[in-house]
Every structure is written in C-alpha cells, then in structure tokens.
Write a protein that binds this DNA or RNA. Structure first.
Length: 453
DNA sequence: CTGGGGATGGGGCCC
DNA sequence: TGGGCCCCATCCCCA
C-alpha cells in the first residue's frame, strides 16, 4: 500500500529541517551568503553536487562546503527552494540566470523547465506581434517573460523526462506535487511558430559556422534549433561534442569543477548546456584579469559580452522582433533590417542593377517594383522598353525607415501616398519608374541615414 | 551543371 | 547596453 502524501511530507520535513538548520551537513557559499542544506538532498538533486559530494564522501564526518561565484544568492535561493519543495519560481528576470545555474549544477529538470518558460514566453510574444504587426518590444516583454510562474516538479518525474510546456500567459501559477504530465500544455501557436521556423531552421542547419573558436558541430549532432527546444530538453543527451571540451577547458581552467563528467545511467549532461553567464575565475588569481565569458546555454558558443549573448540567443529562439513594414519580412536584428531596407526598398546604390554601371540622375532612373527599388541606366531601361517614363519627383515620397522607438508605428512610405504621386505602373509587374535625381536622392539618403546609422 | 552576385544571417567590436 | 558597422559564410536565384 502506497501513501501518496508520504513523499510530499518527507520533503516538507526536510525543508523544515533546512530552515531550522537541523542536521544540515553542507554549507554552500554563494557570493558571501551561506546556505545550509543536507548533503543527501543535494546529492540526489544535482549532478554537480553528486560529483562533488561523492569525491568528498570519505570525509563524511566533516561538514562539506561548496563555494559558487557563477550565480547570485537570489538565483541559488530559487534553485534550493526547488530542491526542497519541487517548486521553481521563475520570472522573466531570473529565468536565464536560473537556467545557467541549473546548467552549472547539472539539474536537467530545471533546465528543461527554464527552456520551456523561455520558449513559451517568446511564443506569446510572437503571438502578440503577429496580431499587431509592429508591436513595441516593451509591450511584448510585458506580455511575455515578465510574468512570473512557479513550476512544480513532480517527484515521480524520474519515470519520464520533463516534457512540460507551460505557458506564461497563464500568469502566476502554482503547480505543486504533480507529475510532469499534469501540465503538458502546448499552445497551438507554438506549433505554428515551429512551422514558420522550419525553413529558417533548414537554412541554419547548414549555416553552422566552424570558425567560432575553432569549434565545429560534430556531424552526428544536429545543430540545436529553437523549435527543438522540447526535443533537446527531453532527449537523452548522450552526445558530447569533442570540441566542446575545448570550450570547457578554455573557460573553466581555474574552476573547481574542471573536467567533471557526470553520468547518470545513460544520461550525460550535455556540456553544451553549461554555464551561460560570466565565468568568474574561482579562486581568482590576483594577477589574472577577470575573464568574463558568456556561454550560450543551447550551444557551445561563448561570447565576451552579455549583450552579444542576448543577441545570439535569438538565433536559437527564432525571435524576430524587427519586421520590415515594406515587405513584411522579419529580422532578428535591427541592423539586418536596416541593411535589408536600404538594399531592397531604398535603391541606395547608384549602380545599374542590370549592367552594374554607375548611374547618375542623367544616366539612369530608380525603378520601383512593388516595394523593391533599384536603379537602371537609361540604356537598360531602353532595352526593357521603358525609357520614356518620367516621374514628378517633387511628389515622390521615399520609403522611410522608422526612427528609434517607433517600432510600433506604421512606417511611412510611398505606397501610402501613391494616389498623390504621379507614377507609372507596369500593369503586369507592378513596375514603377522614377527619374533619378541624385541631388534629391542624396538629400533623401541624408535624411534617412541618421535614422539608420 | 556551374559560377557569380545579391540577400541574409551571425559574430566581433566600436561608439 | 543598445545601435550600428564590418566581415564573413551560406543560401538562393539567374544567366
């Protein structure tokens, strides 16, 4: 006969003992703050502690002390509370750091839940953005990751990997003592987003660059993509890229956990899920400069700046917050959008698209094909049989790139004023010819450039 | 089929 | 810290 509440009460008791510092035989020092805990609980919850404590198990009479500088006391509080309660308090602010800490401590369940949290948040963001094509980032974030959520990990979770899909749009939620299957939630829009990403993923599969730190994805390991978050989280991560070892060695030279290799049955914690936050040298040498590195929790990539990591993470999450309002194409980066806008919609290059010769206001014209603009020299225009078309540039309204902070406003470009513009359209191809006036165009560019640059 | 060029995306890094 | 520029790799289209 099984009393289902026993595990819950047992954990509750242990948590109570921890709070009262009863039988605590392990001290964890995180940036100066001391946490008391039970060795056996830590051993059972974290691969890192399992490794650490098994090494020091011979001296069981001595209290064990672990020191961390890779994450904050607040983050460790979240982790420790989870260990002792099964409830993970995630917010948009702490999820990255919690995931990093969980990676560091080799707590796969926590990593999975964090990934799901991030993915779901982005999904909500995408949903909002799809509704209002150019929602501001601020609005999105307020609808997304900023909501706090408390995840409850079931203590029967060992039977199945955590395929949890919890939507942050549920707001604050408390799920305690449930099995993972109790909160399998997969928003339909998430599936849609995955479908939308599929092409991008296929492209990215081959865009894996070997040049970064000389690293290369092993051929047998598919590059990790955003829509594979769940699969990756759930899959037995038994593959370790040999090259990843280099990263570990490179970034964790002085760390106390150098070269650890935790294995739990067939499951090996993927080292690619290692720390994604600054690698403080510990103990830091007085001579060494603090070598700040930020590791991507999804791949082996290491960057020097947090902002670069944030930017890099978009290639995993598939987030594309910058839509081109001229053609609808979305970009993960503003500079890519700017570049796209300049090349596709502004015809900035004074080059004939056909013969590649330099064109001036005398020797060529701007051709507008739908929202695309490019230049053709008069000869090429004549070849195309459209040499007699002239446009009153006084009335011509150039495509304008939105200013900063104007992400949520519609862009203004010629299309809106076409009724006012004397344009000639090719009925079959939506072709619009505009006379090149470099002086005018230069002025246009000057007007736009400060916004872009 | 192949090579060239445009478009795109990712990283480094400066401001 | 975000914006933006530069460089490079890759994809895709077209001749």
């Amino acid at each position: 006969m099984e009393i289902s509440s026993h595990q819950f009460h047992l954990l509750q008791q242990l948590n109570e003992q921890r709070r009262q510092d009863l039988f605590c035989d392990c001290s964890i020092l995180v940036e100066g703050k001391v946490f008391k805990a039970h060795r056996n609980v830590l051993f059972a919850s974290s691969g890192y502690f399992k490794m650490l404590l098994s090494q020091s198990s011979k001296e069981t009479t001595q209290p064990t002390t672990a020191t961390f500088q890779a994450f904050s006391p607040d983050t460790f509080t979240v982790i420790l509370d989870f260990v002792y309660s099964g409830k993970l308090s995630l917010t948009g602010q702490n999820v990255i750091e919690v995931m990093s800490a969980a990676s560091y401590l080799q707590m796969t369940d926590v990593i999975s839940v964090c990934k799901t949290f991030i993915k779901s948040s982005l999904d909500i963001s995408e949903k909002e953005k799809d509704r209002y094509f150019s929602l501001s980032d601020k609005d999105v974030s307020s609808n997304g990751v900023d909501r706090s959520c408390v995840y409850g990990a079931g203590w029967r979770a060992e039977s199945s990997p955590p395929h949890s899909h919890v939507s942050p749009d549920q707001g604050t939620c408390m799920v305690g003592g449930s099995t993972w299957s109790n909160f399998n939630y997969f928003p339909t829009s998430q599936r849609n987003a995955q479908q939308q990403l599929s092409k991008h993923e296929q492209r990215q599969d081959s865009v894996k660059k070997p040049r970064h730190l000389g690293l290369q994805q092993p051929s047998d390991i598919p590059p990790y993509k955003s829509s594979k978050l769940e699969e990756r989280a759930a899959e037995p991560a038994g593959h370790i890229a040999p090259s990843e070892e280099q990263v570990q060695l490179d970034t964790e030279v002085a760390s106390p956990h150098v070269g650890y290799q935790y294995s739990q049955g067939a499951d090996v914690i993927p080292r690619s899920l290692a720390v994604s936050q600054p690698e403080h040298e510990s103990p830091r040498s007085s001579n060494d400069l603090p070598r700040m590195r930020f590791k991507c929790p999804f791949c082996t990539h290491v960057v020097k700046r947090k902002a670069d990591l944030k930017r890099h993470l978009r290639c995993h999450t598939g987030e594309r917050p910058y839509p081109c309002e001229a053609c609808g194409k979305r970009f993960s980066r503003l500079d890519h959008l700017s570049s796209h806008f300049r090349t596709i919609h502004q015809a900035c290059k004074p080059i004939c698209r056909k013969c590649k010769r330099h064109v001036t206001e005398l020797t060529g014209q701007v051709v507008q094909e739908g929202t695309r603009r490019y230049r053709l020299c008069n000869e090429c225009l004549a070849e195309a049989g459209i040499d007699s078309i002239r446009i009153d540039l006084e009335a011509e309204t150039p495509l304008e790139f939105p200013q900063d902070g104007d992400k949520d406003s519609r862009w203004h470009y010629g299309e809106d004023n076409r009724s006012d513009v004397e344009i000639v359209e090719d009925g079959s191809s939506d072709l619009v010819i505009q006379q090149v006036d470099d002086s005018e165009d230069e002025a246009d560019e000057k007007e736009v450039k400060p916004k872009i640059r």
